[in-house]
Write a protein that binds this DNA or RNA. Structure first.
Lengths: 196, 196, 196, 196
DNA sequence: TCATAAGCGAGACGGTACGTCGTGTCTTACG
DNA sequence: CGTAAGACACGACGTACCGTCTCGCTTATGA
């Protein structure tokens, strides 16, 4: 019933990918603590031992499912103009995070438990986006749209950060208008400030 | 041992406040799922029935403790200048959210469970901050610092939203410098744009 | 609704009698451990404190209700013939125990708990019957129906004991035929043995 | 520490037998309502789930422990003479019931609760003894000691019934002399009547 | 006639056991 | 050998009940 589609470029075997897909689906349906490992095993017609052999805790299973679910999401828009790049990026983030808000909330619980999860979150989720944004900004600097000083080490993530905040912590999923306003009224003024 | 301090203006009785305080402390010490209702009852020398009579599930208990813990945190700085108001507000938010990141993560799980939690989160947590920020902006409009159009219905929460994102979703708790940069390089340019 | 009838010669006040009557009824309806003191209080529109003021534990309440319920049951038949006395007594016991089997079972639990309950059971329940039976036998000796040696200190209670056993431990409540057979085929042969 | 002895011919697995043995011991030590399922689980190093998987309530657990405890007690004396058979049987019953009086009282409470317990009591406890006694009487008929009519459907259980009554409902545990008197002065006269 | 006290109904409370359920480990049997 | 099936120990959850306690209200008495 459940084929191993979408497993390309995955570090997981087809069977493992199937388990993660089942996990992800149940996660989105029921939330983190209504998800039971027994349910995953039953749905995938797998033994609990099979699951626990690969992911020693429920937390790691859920985290792996989350990472696998978001692995393909970061694509560089590269439209040729900073504003358009930011708009496209914002739309992508908003769309993706909107469907995975529940999963992200689930993963956050694990971050409180061990710093290790925080580090994994950093590496496997945020760093991808950081590199992408800095690539966009670097191109804008090269085109002379903004000053090089606008690329900071600290505040690179206001765009994704705010959008994620909106989806995950409040119910108000960001609309297209939200993304436009954010780019035009908040981000662009700060980035182009001083570059006339 | 534990007096009923800080219960002013609370919807809870002193005894209930005490239970919530115990819950909050154990929550910060052990995290959400290492917190047991039995431990709360034992620490507060209360019966489990007493706790469950008010908050029918562990989730609601934790949520109430979180709301009670953040109820006193929203204070209006009112320094007389918009930039200083934003800086002080940002510092307050960063400090408070920094200590309660784990609790917020715990509460978020419940948001996935029922829309009711989302609504409670909205009313009891976010609306407080929204009113506060719009008060600050209204004063700035009155002083002529910014245009009235800068007060939007949608993007009022970039400051708290980003700071909360930083503490809760990434490990990088915002520093003083982060708050300063955020206010000076992101928020103020957008707010004062066109009102030179 | 519930008047204080049947409280004559009772050591209890009318109100107390009412509480015991409610207890007895609920006891017969639901059995010992499905009976809750709260239910007694609610049914009698009384406060739990009122109940506990008189009977410090549920066990004592139930025991008092049992004793009150069986207080009027021991009546001397005195028909003029041993066999008829025994038959009538057996019928009485069978009828009374048949309706109170559940209550007796309930009281038995308390006997296991403290020897005090055993003693109270002895005094307030069994001794009454012992005196009655020995009165019957003494009359039979006086009439020359049986030898004086037939009155023993140990085995006086075969008639009530077996009938109680039948009702309380097995489901087979003794019928009229059972009582007749018991008197004619078991008791009378043993009593009249040797007295031709 | 606790081997699986005495589990022969048992409907229970060795592990289940162990659980019942622990239950029976704790039952005799503390009585029914001072016995906790948690204590059984802890003593047997078992999970509560393991216990509840087999016996859905504490009552059923205790009943099963009682039945298992009395399963081996019914042995046919077969001495060759009716009087000796009855004496030996009476002694056995008196000894066994004497040690298990508290357990029987505990089990009786459950009989009031559901008719199902009454049926189980009948099948698993009383029917064993009935078959045994009728075997004894049948042999006596074959030997010509008593008339065939002495075997009745109704009153077969005077011997065990009275002895159980003595142990369970009164404090007066039957002595050897009690058993002798019961056999010689009550049972034998009734059984041998007319077969002189 | 009014005040002060004693008893009662109502019900919250601390404690504790019950019965349920989920995690992570382990064993058995199959392919 | 790896896997499906599922029993198991551990422990938390949420419920129910016992016996204690406080709070008002009513009633019964003394100035």
């Amino acid at each position: 019933m459940r084929s191993a589609d979408g497993c390309t470029d995955s570090p997981w075997s087809p069977r493992e990918c199937e388990l993660l897909a089942v996990t992800l689906q149940l996660l989105q349906e029921h939330g983190y603590d209504r998800l039971t490992v027994d349910a995953v095993a039953a749905t995938a017609r797998a033994s609990k031992a099979t699951i626990y052999r690969r992911w020693p805790t429920k937390a790691e299973l859920v985290f792996a499912a989350f990472v696998e679910g978001t692995r393909q999401a970061a694509v560089d828009p590269d439209t040729g103009a900073l504003r358009d790049d930011l708009l496209r990026l914002g739309e992508n983030i908003a769309a993706h995070v909107g469907t995975h808000a529940g999963t992200i909330r689930a993963v956050l619980v694990e971050m409180s438990r061990s710093a290790e999860f925080g580090a994994m979150m950093q590496e496997q989720f945020l760093d991808q986006r950081k590199a992408l944004i800095q690539r966009i900004l670097t191109r804008a600097v090269a085109r002379g749209e903004i000053a090089a000083a606008a690329i900071t080490e600290d505040l690179w993530d206001v765009l994704p950060g705010y959008l994620i905040f909106r989806s995950v912590l409040t119910g108000r999923s960001p609309s297209h208008q939200t993304v436009h306003d954010l780019v035009d009224n908040v981000l662009m003024p700060g980035l182009t400030r001083g570059s006339t």
